[in-house]
Design a protein around this nucleic acid. Structure first.
Length: 520
DNA sequence: TTGTGTTTTATTGCCTCC
DNA sequence: GGAGGCAATAAAACACAA
């Protein structure tokens, strides 16, 4: 009777002893996991096994990581919903209509009616997509294949996997939640067809997208050239729009929406950025060195450290990453998807300011670069880690996965961003993928007693999806394209703009709704 | 240098589904 | 009943401010 317990205790002991110090995943592992997670949020056993083998992790670790990763997304979504609800309360019905009939519910859950109820998260995330032989090394290729396959598919939102949908949407520049100015509004202010390629989101995406299009279009039209010609002007001038334009204080509310609705958000965003910036800045400064062709000699020196610190402090005050690496094709030999260029050239620079934060966001993976630059020997703690020894295979594959990476960066890039939106980006997929589960969760939560006030419910958490996206974007771009960042000095002029945190960088849904509501 | 806050990882228990 | 997933929790790792 007690034996199993004792055995268990012993096992736990040993396992605890083994894991006295929990080990952080190596950047390579994280990157692989993240990339894989993009495609398969619910990996099958086989997938986990393969992943575990490839990454030299246990299946348990893989499972745990995915589990936590999902939780993380979920949490972000929850926060976002909370934040949105807070703001929506102050806005008029347009916003709320947006979710009508869609089972929009209160903070912490997303019940989706319509098409998504047919989605089985598991099936969608794993089986539905995973038709390729799995190998971490092939993940990106699989992804690519998935793309092309889906592109040729007819619209069947209810049956397609959410990831592919998401990707396709992004690939086509049609984030249903998003309204990218360069795409969604033409020079004459008319709405372009929702889907030039024939894809049309159904259900929630469809309704939401259309509503937003109308709303956004209205605002965009009103803002006129500033918006159409140059994004940043929009945000910069946004504050100066006479109150009459919005019939009352909404002009301010737009500007302050984030702070008002969720002051902690801005604060946390700020914290986040400040926290993450150094990582990037570090790499940034190193990139500058790299640009000069000076890679190694100063690594690890005190001088270097001090310089880094100083430069970090200086650069931290600036806009760090302008996504220019994406804007200019760093690899003349390699083709960038047209979207990228369109996006880069046409997209309102206002987005850049926010993108800066996103791309500049730190993550362990990001450190991979900076660390590798600063201390090659310290790239990985585990020199004996086969996965790292396989850095060849592992990283090499990523290096080869241009399409994937471009997609990823595009994924980041093409989105007008703020912390709220960032969450949504990932949730587009996951909400649907998890909708069923979430519904159950809802159900369960109604019955289940909360043991403790969860820290998750503070509603102020900064979506680290942002960091994920930023991480991927930066790492992918920098690593795979060996991008040389442009000197900060070139970027500096933008620092006159308010930070992404402070200003609504784009027509996010809420802002749009607020403005459009007053337009009515 | 230290305290604080955040993120990440690991573990455990419960629930749902097959 | 087992497997898988989620939520809660603890703790390590990390970054930043004072």
């Amino acid at each position: 009777m007690d034996e199993p317990n004792e055995m268990q205790l012993e096992d736990n002991k040993t396992s605890m002893e083994k894991n006295i110090k929990r080990k952080l995943k190596t950047p390579a592992q994280l990157m692989a996991l993240e990339n894989f997670y993009n495609d398969h949020k619910y990996p099958t056993e086989e997938m986990k096994f393969e992943l575990a083998n490839e990454l030299v992790l246990t299946e348990k670790q893989i499972s745990g990581w995915f589990c936590h990763r999902r939780l993380k997304d979920k949490r972000l979504m929850r926060d976002e919903v909370c934040a949105n609800n807070g703001r929506q309360d102050r806005s008029s019905g347009v916003v709320q209509d947006r979710g009508s009939g869609l089972g929009q519910d209160s903070c912490g859950s997303t019940k989706h009616g319509g098409d998504y109820r047919y989605l089985d998260p598991k099936e969608v995330e794993s089986n539905g997509v995973y038709n390729h032989e799995l190998s971490v090394a092939n993940m990106n290729y699989a992804h690519t294949n998935l793309y092309t396959e889906n592109d040729s598919e007819t619209d069947n939102t209810s049956s397609e996997n959410s990831s592919s949908l998401q990707e396709r949407l992004f690939l086509q520049g049609h984030d249903p939640y998003d309204t990218e100015p360069s795409r969604y509004i033409t020079q004459n202010g008319a709405l372009p067809p929702l889907n030039p390629k024939g894809y049309k989101p159904s259900g929630y995406l469809k309704l939401k997208g259309e509503i937003e299009h109308a709303a956004v279009t209205a605002v965009k039209n009103q803002l006129g050239r500033n918006y159409l010609e140059d994004g940043p002007l929009l945000t910069v001038d946004f504050d100066t729009i006479p109150p009459e334009a919005f019939e009352c204080q909404t002009a301010n509310s737009i500007k302050e929406s984030y702070h008002v609705a969720n002051p902690s958000l801005a604060k946390r965003q700020s914290n986040l950025n400040s926290r993450y910036d150094p990582y990037f800045n570090k790499s940034s400064s190193q990139d500058l060195q790299m640009e000069g062709g000076d890679f190694g000699p100063s690594h690890g020196s005190d001088f270097q450290d001090k310089q880094d610190k100083k430069s970090r402090q200086r650069i931290k005050q600036r806009t760090t990453f302008q996504g220019r690496a994406v804007r200019t094709n760093p690899l003349p030999g390699k083709s960038f998807p047209p979207d990228l260029y369109i996006d880069s050239t046409v997209e309102a620079p206002a987005y850049n300011s926010t993108r800066n934060h996103r791309i500049g966001a730190k993550h362990g993976v990001e450190r991979m670069k900076s660390d590798s630059a600063s201390n090659p020997n310290d790239l990985y703690e585990e020199n004996n880690n086969p996965a790292i020894e396989q850095e060849g295979p592992l990283l090499h594959d990523y290096n080869n996965s241009n399409v994937k990476n471009v997609r990823t960066s595009e994924y980041v890039k093409s989105k007008p961003s703020n912390s709220i939106r960032n969450s949504r980006i990932s949730m587009d997929t996951e909400e649907r993928g998890l909708s069923e589960r979430m519904a159950k969760e809802e159900k369960r939560n109604g019955i289940r007693k909360v043991k403790k006030p969860s820290h998750e419910s503070d509603g102020g958490r900064i979506p680290s999806k942002e960091t994920m996206v930023a991480k991927r974007a930066k790492v992918d771009l920098l690593r795979q394209y060996d991008i040389k960042q442009e000197p900060v000095a070139e970027i500096e002029p933008r620092k006159t703009q308010r930070s992404a945190v402070e200003m609504p960088s784009s027509f996010s849904e809420d802002e749009t709704a607020e403005t459009s509501s007053s337009l009515d």
